[in-house]
Design a protein around this nucleic acid. Sequence first.
DNA 1: AGTAACTTACAATGCAGTCAGTAAGTAGCA
DNA 2: TGCTACTTACTGACTGCATTGTAAGTTACT
Lengths: 211, 211
Amino acid sequence: MATTRRQLPPRPETAARRREILAAALEIFGAKGYNNGPLAEIAEQVGMTHAGILHHFGSKDRLLVEVLRYRDESDVEGIEGQHIPGGTELFRHLIRTAFANEERPGIVQAYAVLSAESVTDSNPGREYFEDRYRVLRGEVAEAFRAMCAERGVDDPAHVERAATSVLAVMDGLQVQWLLDPTQVELAATSAFAIEAIALQALDPRPSPFDA
Amino acid sequence: MATTRRQLPPRPETAARRREILAAALEIFGAKGYNNGPLAEIAEQVGMTHAGILHHFGSKDRLLVEVLRYRDESDVEGIEGQHIPGGTELFRHLIRTAFANEERPGIVQAYAVLSAESVTDSNPGREYFEDRYRVLRGEVAEAFRAMCAERGVDDPAHVERAATSVLAVMDGLQVQWLLDPTQVELAATSAFAIEAIALQALDPRPSPFDA
DNA sequence: AGTAACTTACAATGCAGTCAGTAAGTAGCA
DNA sequence: TGCTACTTACTGACTGCATTGTAAGTTACT
């Protein structure tokens, strides 16, 4: 048995280099999809060969999950975590995010493409998106419950559905906006829909469709 | 010049055979995505080689656009076209569709995957989805205007946004439902959200987030 | 007789991942 | 401080596989 000193720490520049790769991968995967986005193109963008990327991340699958995590962190201000804003603060934050998103179509496209692609057979990003939606639904629902409590609403019947709907409408609007930005106002429509859903959750009115 | 009778009519069974292929392609593309869904797998499902499929459709790109058109026709009852139901009928139809969709996850997945994939670079389905959303938005907006008129609402300020939101929430819910059907009620949540959006469009209340 | 509806065989890419090798950094030690 | 041993961070070449499209041949309908 040798006195093995195996496993040296990574070099100081390595962390920055990895972030470069993750940013490039987010761009390529966003533009062309995960399946259709070759490692070689990502490599080219950071001045490397595709083998160099595999050296850092092991496989394309693992690169994707790291890209998704990276996107969370680099997201302007992480929605989740932190102080869990009590009442209306989370919703204001969601609407601000929608406004910010109008200035970064690349990120929006990456998210829209990769989340939908994640439902396909044996996609490596699936677990990430399952977890993400579960966490986000929980946080939005919690914010709804806080608002209900503040306003003395006892029976928050539709809190779960409202939370799910808020996230759904934001995602769905992104796809329509990406397809035709001249016809869809991403932020203004997000704000309208979120308000509509919140109002119905906090203070329900009868359905306009029942005869 | 020979008395060429070039171009013989297709044989009687051909139309049915093509439909078989389209159905198989919809299933494969839905399950694995367009880029990741090989022709060979579609061919296998209809008992053919991939060259046989290319004989019928010429290229994979052209197959996709025909698949998308086919999906419209085979959709239980086409939302668009026909009699353009005057008032609340369209919304009831949308909600019924959401209930029907809970029984056919394959179709839902195909739609979710292919619509998101269509925003990627040079995707052959893009034009189809652009057109489709434009048409659907117009029809839903028209239905909103009809409801406003029936109820004597003069200023339908948010009709366009409401129409966009209704479609968006339905699409977004599908993705969440596909990721975790045990946590998301597709139809019930669709109904809740559509009602919330419709109520706010027909009879707006002030935002709960101001002040 | 001619063509539709295929099949088999093949051409041409594109792509992830492996492997051996190289240059440069770092740790331990004299 | 300088030397040695080992590791990281790559490159280039290659393998192997998957995949779309084409071309030529076969069968059977009309």
